[in-house]
Nucleic acid binder design. Structure first.
Length: 495
RNA sequence: GGGCCUGUAGCUCAAUCGGCAGAGCAGCGGACUUUUAAUCCGAAGGUCGUGGGUUCGAUCCCCACCGGGCCCA
């Protein structure tokens, strides 16, 4: 592809080369950044000189030529600073400055001054082109708006849109604060296999691949669960991992095929402990990252301050549907009653019906942070039987602004019961439930050495970032979300 | 998988109920020593997502396909 402007800039590159100038030189050393200069010199009046010589480097984002004078806008990673180029100082070099194009990367050395209007600027003594930009930038006022281009060419989004830089700044700080929080509690960070011969730990469809040397099919992990629990068995009593997991499912505003999960396991804890861990960690991260645990999400107030509401899964369904349900009711009765409410469930047992009812009638209304506790055993193959309630397990999901943000259990640590759960899953799979879990005998074997009672947790990190960054789709917090490849492209996610 | 919306200049957007597609920014030529989305003058820039169909004539209507978004399953 080529256009008039692209050709124009390529001929400028040729002209520079002919004149002996390298359009892509190395060796420029910046000594200052825009934000730092604004902070240091915020109290200068107008027409001030400082005698301070600095070197700044960045992308030329604006230029206003006034004959024998030209103003530029330089953007670096910290922000923007005005450049002041005048013929008195630069002589003939002013023409070369005026010849720069928006988008060019340049290095500038000069004195920190303020202009007549009081704008902090660097008066250019010397400048050099550091990298020529051959394509024009998006529109300077509206930025880049087309969502498809923003995702496919994220670098342009980051160059042109302050909002994109803000969101990914938040993401970076959330990652840092999560690590800090778990490390502060004595957790050890680990890395476990992404390539697995059997993808387990969640009820989801995996991506399949092949290991040539071993000549076996392999799968990308769908959860971190089973390896982290092996570490708990190994005596790593407090362990966490932040990693990418992959689920071969549809994309939606809340789903990307690969996403970032934080899982943690703590020996001798139960799900009550984990609820406190979650509400304290999330409100603490909010405080550290956005300055408060009382935030606004999509124009509605959202209070993340601990403690969060606890509500029973079964009671929520009963209230929302106006009927009495039980995890132990016959599946045919449950299906029939659900059908009367417009919910048709053809696979699985009563637990599956209850799960669908929950998603349909309860989930959308859970705005304030809520721990939904005590799930049906059937849909929770790794959670321990509830200490009081038959048919239920000690499991909770945390919902924030209607978004499922975490999932946690008092972990099942009885190997014989675990084997029975796997057998039940195998039965479900035989009945047509393609997301049912595969039996993992190696994991059962590990449990047979003795697994301590444990509280485990999974947090959807992308969703947490969505909430703290106040954006409505997960694609806004993933740098390169998956897209269908365009014809002729051959790299990158979905391209 | 189904429904709705969407694709026009490098970017942000118009318009055409079927009759030569037009603005701003960016770019090009010119003026300007204090601009802040600089301003002023001038001349350019288009496979209207792709392919078919209907029509004297299609960017517009119809069909299929491609990309994207939202909702539902």
């Amino acid at each position: 592809m080529s256009t008039e402007q692209h050709n124009e800039r390529r001929s400028k590159v040729e002209a520079l080369r002919s004149a002996g100038v390298d359009p892509y030189p190395i060796g420029f050393v910046p000594t200052a950044e825009a934000a730092e200069l604004h902070a240091r010199f915020k109290d200068l009046g107008s027409e001030a000189t400082t005698g301070e010589q600095v070197s700044v480097a960045g992308r030329l984002m604006g230029k206003r030529d006034l004959g024998k004078l030209s103003f530029g806008v330089l953007q670096d990673r910290s922000g923007r600073i005005q450049l002041f180029a005048d013929q008195r100082t630069l002589g003939d070099e002013l023409a070369a400055f005026v010849d720069l194009d928006l988008g060019d990367l340049i290095g500038v050395t000069g004195e920190v001054i303020t202009t007549k209007r009081g704008e902090l600027s660097v008066r250019i003594h010397e400048f050099s082109l550091l990298a020529k930009a051959l394509w024009p930038l998006p529109e300077k006022w509206h930025g880049l708006a087309d969502v498809e281009t923003r995702y496919r060419q994220r670098y342009l989004d980051l160059i042109a849109n302050e909002e994109a830089r803000r969101v990914f700044g938040i993401r970076s700080r959330v990652m840092r604060e999560l690590r800090r929080a778990f490390e502060g509690r004595g957790y050890v960070e680990v890395e476990t296999p992404v390539l697995q011969s059997q993808a387990g730990g969640a009820l989801a469809e995996p991506f399949q691949t092949h290991h040539n040397a071993l000549s076996i099919d392999m799968y990308l992990r769908i959860a971190l669960e089973l390896y982290l629990k092996r570490l708990i068995i190994g005596g790593v009593d407090k362990v966490f991992e932040i990693g990418r997991v992959f689920r071969n499912e549809g994309v939606s505003p809340q789903h990307n095929p690969e996403f970032t999960m934080l899982e943690s396991y703590e020996a001798y804890a139960d799900y009550e402990d984990i609820m406190r861990l979650v509400e304290e960690t999330v409100s603490g991260v909010a405080l550290a990252v956005v300055g408060s645990s009382e935030i606004e999400y999509q124009d509605r107030p959202l209070d993340l301050t601990a403690p969060w509401r606890r509500a029973s899964f079964m009671e929520l369904i009963n209230e929302a549907t106006g009927r009495e349900w039980s995890p132990e009711m016959p599946v045919e009765d449950a299906r029939e009653a659900a059908r009367e409410l417009g919910v048709d469930v053809e696979v699985g047992g009563t637990g599956k019906v209850l799960e669908d009812l929950f998603g349909r009638f309860v989930e959308p209304g859970l705005w304030e942070p809520t721990f939904v506790v005590d799930f049906p055993k059937e849909i929770s193959p790794f959670a321990r039987d509830h200490r009081d309630e038959p048919g239920l397990v000690e499991r909770f999901e945390g919902f924030v602004a209607g978004i499922e943000m975490c999932n946690a259990f008092t972990e099942l640590n009885d190997p014989e019961e675990q084997l029975r759960r796997f057998e039940a899953q195998a039965e479900a799979r035989a009945q047509g439930d393609e997301e049912a879990h595969l039996t993992d005998l190696d994991f059962v074997h590990a449990m047979e050495y003795g697994m301590p009672p444990t509280g485990g947790l999974g947090i959807g990190v992308d969703r947490l970032v969505m909430i703290l960054a106040n954006v409505s789709t997960v694609r806004e917090v993933i740098l390169f979300p998956h897209m269908r490849p365009l014809e002729g492209e051959a790299s990158g996610p979905g391209s």
